[in-house]
């Protein structure tokens, strides 16, 4: 499924002050592509994701989806950084939530949930409550819950940002493995350049606020990706490219670039 974001604007007011979050943001996401969205903090990455998810209305422009593969099932499902699991539901009922909302019979949805719980490596935790799990395990549940819902597009808003460095690395590998299985169209917001390069087919770089898509970098690393690639010259080249592009935006955001460039 393809996503076409064209000239999306987003303005909202915070305590009476008008904030221009997005300004003519345009982006094409290809079918079954893993696109990472990278940008300085506060640039509107999350806002753009919420608009694609249909959770926020855009002030202007439009988002369209082309080429639905299945007639049923949701178009998009989101995965958040944290605190998004339902604390009163056990793991299996969290994972089955989407299917339950869409009226899937109990037996069928529990079997389906079980499948995804197994796939993310959480056998034995079906009856646990979210607060009994570590941060990494909770994000596995969040991923299983999103996949169990069988969306055509998976939208992920810094899903690993709250985890410690080691857990994050483990989860990146897990994510790569699972994505290889389902080949969903993914838009993945992150502030980690390494993560953007390691996971993405392409990296979309956003400008400082008001955000727009500044540049799209194709990631030329072969799949399947492995952690060994983190030390290859090609990886460094891509990461440097992304970093330089972002750095310009940081400079804009902090108002330091003007003098530097005029000379």
């Amino acid at each position: 499924m393809r996503i076409s974001v064209s000239n999306v604007d987003k303005r909202f007011s915070v305590r009476g002050r008008e904030v221009n979050a997005l300004n003519k943001a345009s982006l094409e996401v290809r079918d079954a592509e893993f696109l990472t969205l990278l940008g300085p903090s506060g640039c509107g990455k999350s806002t753009l994701l919420q608009i694609i998810a249909g959770l926020e209305p855009a002030t202007g422009g439009k988002v369209s989806f082309e080429g639905r593969r299945t007639a049923s099932g949701p178009v998009t499902t989101m995965v958040w950084q944290r605190y998004a699991l339902f604390p009163w539901r056990t793991i299996k009922h969290n994972v089955a939530f989407g299917c339950e909302m869409r009226g899937m019979p109990r037996g069928e949805r529990m079997a389906r949930a079980q499948h995804f719980i197994e796939n993310v490596g959480l056998i034995g935790f079906e009856e646990a409550f979210p607060h009994e799990l570590s941060g990494g395990m909770q994000q596995r549940v969040a991923l299983a819950r999103a996949l169990c819902n069988d969306p055509e597009i998976l939208l992920m808003d810094e899903p690993l940002a709250a985890l410690d460095a080691q857990t994050r690395t483990v989860m990146q590998v897990e994510l790569l493995r699972i994505w290889d299985q389902y080949k969903k169209t993914v838009v993945y917001v992150t502030h980690s350049i390494d993560e953007a390069v390691l996971l993405g087919d392409r990296i979309a770089i956003m400008s400082a606020r008001p955000g727009r898509i500044k540049e799209v970098i194709p990631v030329t690393l072969p799949r399947p990706r492995t952690l060994d690639m983190l030390t290859t010259p090609e990886f460094h080249k891509l990461a440097d490219h992304a970093w330089n592009s972002i750095k310009e935006e940081f400079d804009v955001a902090y108002g330091a670039s003007k003098e530097g460039q005029s000379q």
Partner: peptide, 22 residues
């Protein structure tokens, strides 16, 4: 928490189910 509501909506909950189930 707004994120719980958004989660539920994103997973396909209707307004009514959002109220009852979240």
């Amino acid at each position: 928490e707004p994120v719980l509501k958004r989660s539920a909506l994103s997973l396909g909950a209707s307004k009514l189910r959002l109220f009852i189930n979240v």
